[in-house]
Design a protein around this nucleic acid. Structure first.
Lengths: 164, 164
DNA sequence: TTTGCTAATGTTATAATATTGCAAATTTCG
DNA sequence: CGAAATTTGCAATATTATAACATTAGCAAA
């Protein structure tokens, strides 16, 4: 039996979040970019679980925080975080998830469980090269590659009905 | 020099549309599904070019037709067409495009030109199998695979500024 | 310390995309 | 025909995202 990937097994998620925030600080410093309180808070919220979060979900939590924010605040923070490779947008879900390979150059491929909602980000070199090759056969010059796979994660295949 | 794929070279596009409509009729018959006038008209509109069309673009043309339709009309027609494999939704664009492999079982991969807007749908067995393999390594059971590649098509790489 | 510049945020409004729910019409089929 | 199922019409509303412009914070030079 192969080891389950992170999102699918119990773990101290606070450690995930802490690591993500620490990495983000480092990366922003390297980029000479300012990880302001709002941006950091949004990143933290996005990282609250391995399930993607919608912009308006983030907005709602900010409101609970007492931060009277409007949509542009959230979208700007998310744009910033995306630009620095700290979060990804999952376009088939209109939602955002923390990048688990921040800092590394990577081609994300996302495995989205329809049952529990967790998303696993993979670096899949074989997939990336196959895509590149297929594009090259059409003389197409790729820029951004979106690969999103909806299905069922190992936990939900074996014991349906999870939500965590 | 490799031959340009269909969307990138001049062709009698009316023939594309006619073939798509004819195929659709056949497929719907096989599925015991009703290709009603609205559905057929929506399919025809989606096929007006090799550029994806938004739901509200379709709606606008229906309005010009004198068909006083509301959004649900369009979305229902599009759902129907998707269910029968006649159109695809490009989630990175929130738009729809005619399926060029209707009837065949296929895993679409879309090459989206950011310059001219044309979209080429490919069947890429190498990509499909790489994705399947990567998912299997995580014991993930894929259901739907979305592969969308944004970039520049051969025509726009060699002579930027196209729109057709 | 003021001044001036840039990046970041606030604020209001609105655009763009998509769905819900119910009633009416149409088609299918016994 | 008449009952059941499918399709459509329609109004309202939900959800996601951006435009436009005013304001403030951070920071460096005069």
């Amino acid at each position: 039996m192969p080891p389950s990937a992170l999102p699918y097994r119990p773990h101290n998620h606070d450690a995930c979040v802490a690591r993500a925030l620490a990495d983000a600080r480092t990366i922003c410093q390297q980029h000479n970019a300012r990880l302001t309180p709002t941006r950091e808070r949004v990143l933290e919220l996005i990282w609250q679980s391995h399930k993607p979060l919608g912009a308006y979900d983030v907005l709602a939590v900010l409101a609970e925080d007492g931060h009277n924010a409007a949509p542009p605040t959230v979208y700007r923070a998310l744009d910033f975080l995306q630009q620095h490779g700290l979060v990804h947008r999952i376009s088939s879900l209109n939602a955002f998830i923390g990048c688990t390979h921040a800092g590394e150059s990577h081609n994300g491929m996302f495995l989205i469980c329809r049952s529990c909602g967790n998303v696993l980000e993979l670096t899949a070199p074989g997939v990336a090269s196959a895509v590149t090759r297929a594009a090259a056969e059409e003389s197409f010059r790729p820029d951004d590659v979106t690969i999103e796979v909806a299905g069922h994660c190992p936990r939900c295949v074996s014991e349906p009905g999870h939500d965590g």
